[in-house]
Deep mutational scan, measured.
Amino acid sequence: AKPPKTVTVKVEVTNADGETQTRTVTLTNLPKDLKPGDTVTLPETGQTARIVEITP
């Protein structure tokens, strides 16, 4: 079996106070056609994050 493909992405997350924070997260099994501006759900927090940058 192939190991899951991990991708490092820079995302913007809005916290409970309405502040936008930029975080770098490593995600696995992202859709192939994901692009900056799309939103993903962070598995560890369940927060919705907007992708700023994808590092191949």
Results as ranks from 00 to 15, higher is better:
T24I: 15
E12D: 04
P43T: 06
V9G: 00
T14R: 09
V25F: 10
E12T: 09
P4D: 11
V7K: 04
L27W: 10
E53D: 06
R50Y: 14
I51Y: 02
L34I: 12
T41L: 12
G18M: 03
K35Q: 09
K5I: 13
T41I: 15
V11L: 06
I54F: 08
T55G: 12
V9Y: 08
E12C: 05
N15A: 08
I54T: 02
V11A: 02
V13I: 14
N29L: 07
I54A: 02
Q47T: 05
T8V: 11
E12L: 12
Q47V: 05
T48A: 10
E19H: 11
K5E: 10
P3R: 04
P43E: 07
G18A: 02
G37L: 01
T8P: 01
D33V: 06
T8L: 10
P3S: 03
T41S: 06
R50D: 02
T45M: 03
N15L: 12
L42W: 04
V52F: 02
D17I: 08
T14C: 07
T48I: 14
R50W: 10
I51A: 01
T45H: 03
V40N: 00
V40W: 11
T24L: 14
L27I: 09
V40F: 14
R23D: 03
D33F: 09
L34A: 14
T8E: 07
K10C: 07
R23P: 01
K10I: 15
L27S: 02
P4Q: 13
V40M: 10
G18R: 02
E44S: 09
V52D: 01
R50H: 08
T8W: 11
D33L: 07
A16M: 09
T24F: 14
D33Y: 09
T48W: 06
T20W: 07
P36I: 15
L27T: 03
T55H: 14
P56T: 13
D17P: 03
L34N: 01
P3E: 09
K2A: 12
I54V: 08
A1C: 10
V7W: 15
T55Y: 15
P56R: 06
P36L: 13
T24C: 07
V25R: 01
N15V: 06
V13M: 07
K32Y: 14
L34E: 00
R50K: 14
V11E: 00
G18P: 01
T22N: 05
K35W: 04
E44Y: 09
V13F: 15
V9A: 05
V7H: 09
P36N: 04
L42H: 02
A16H: 09
T20P: 05
K32P: 14
L30P: 15
T48C: 09
N15K: 05
T20N: 05
T41M: 11
A49Y: 07
G37Q: 01
A16F: 08
T8Y: 09
V7Q: 10
K2R: 12
T20C: 06
D38A: 04
L34G: 02
V9C: 06
I51T: 00
V7P: 02
Q21N: 08
L34W: 14
P36M: 06
A16G: 09
E44C: 07
K2F: 12
G18N: 03
T41Q: 10
I51N: 00
P4L: 13
R50P: 01
P4S: 13
P31S: 14
T14W: 08
T24P: 01
K5C: 09
P3D: 11
T8R: 09
D38S: 04
I54K: 01
P43L: 08
T39W: 15
K5T: 13
G37D: 02
A1R: 07
T28D: 09
E12R: 06
K2Y: 12
V11F: 06
V40H: 01
D17K: 12
E53K: 05
K35S: 04
P43W: 08
G18C: 04
G37R: 01
P43R: 06
G18H: 02
K35N: 05
E53Y: 08
L30M: 14
T55P: 08
E19F: 10
K2H: 14
Q47H: 05
E53I: 03
I54C: 03
A49G: 12
A16K: 10
T14S: 06
T22W: 11
P3Y: 08
A49W: 09
T41Y: 15
K32T: 11
G37N: 03
E19N: 10
T14A: 06
T6V: 11
V13D: 01
T48P: 12
L34F: 06
K2C: 10
E19K: 12
Q47C: 05
V40T: 02
L30A: 14
L34Q: 02
G46V: 02
I54E: 02
D38R: 02
P36V: 15
G46N: 08
L34S: 07
G46P: 01
L27K: 01
E44G: 13
R23A: 09
T28R: 10
V25G: 00
G18Y: 02
R23F: 15
N29K: 05
G46Y: 03
P43Y: 05
T20I: 13
E19I: 13
K10D: 02
D33N: 11
E53T: 07
V13S: 03
R23S: 09
D17V: 09
G37I: 00
P4M: 13
A49C: 05
Q21T: 14
A1F: 12
T26G: 03
T24M: 12
I51F: 04
D38L: 04
K10H: 04
T39L: 14
V7L: 11
T22F: 15
T55Q: 13
T8Q: 10
G18V: 01
E19W: 09
G46D: 04
L27Q: 01
V9W: 02
T14F: 09
R50G: 02
L30D: 05
I54H: 01
L30Y: 15
N29H: 11
K10R: 10
G37T: 01
P36F: 04
L34C: 04
P3T: 03
P31Q: 13
V52N: 01
P43S: 06
K5N: 14
T24R: 05
D38H: 03
Q21G: 06
E12N: 04
G46F: 04
E53S: 12
Q21S: 12
D17H: 11
T45V: 04
L30V: 15
T6I: 10
P56W: 15
K32G: 13
G18W: 01
Q47P: 00
D33G: 12
N29D: 12
K2Q: 12
N29V: 05
N29T: 06
E53G: 04
L27P: 00
V9R: 00
T20S: 08
K32Q: 11
P43M: 06
G18F: 02
E44D: 15
R23M: 15
T28L: 10
L42I: 11
K35E: 04
E53F: 07
G18K: 02
L27A: 02
E19S: 15
V25Q: 02
P43D: 08
K2D: 11
Q47I: 06
A16S: 12
K2V: 12
Q47S: 04
T55M: 15
V11P: 00
T45S: 10
N15M: 12
T24Y: 15
L42Q: 00
N29A: 08
T28Q: 10
E12S: 08
N29R: 07
I54D: 01
T6F: 14
N29Q: 07
V9P: 00
V40Y: 07
P4E: 10
T6E: 10
E12G: 02
T20G: 03
N15T: 12
Q21P: 01
G46S: 04
V11H: 00
D17Q: 12
P31R: 12
E12M: 11
T48H: 07
V25L: 13
P4T: 14
T45R: 02
V13H: 03
L34K: 04
T41P: 03
L27R: 01
I54G: 01
K10F: 06
L30F: 15
Q21D: 11
K32D: 14
A49R: 00
T20Y: 07
G37Y: 02
P3C: 05
V40G: 00
P36Y: 05
T14V: 13
K35Y: 06
D38K: 02
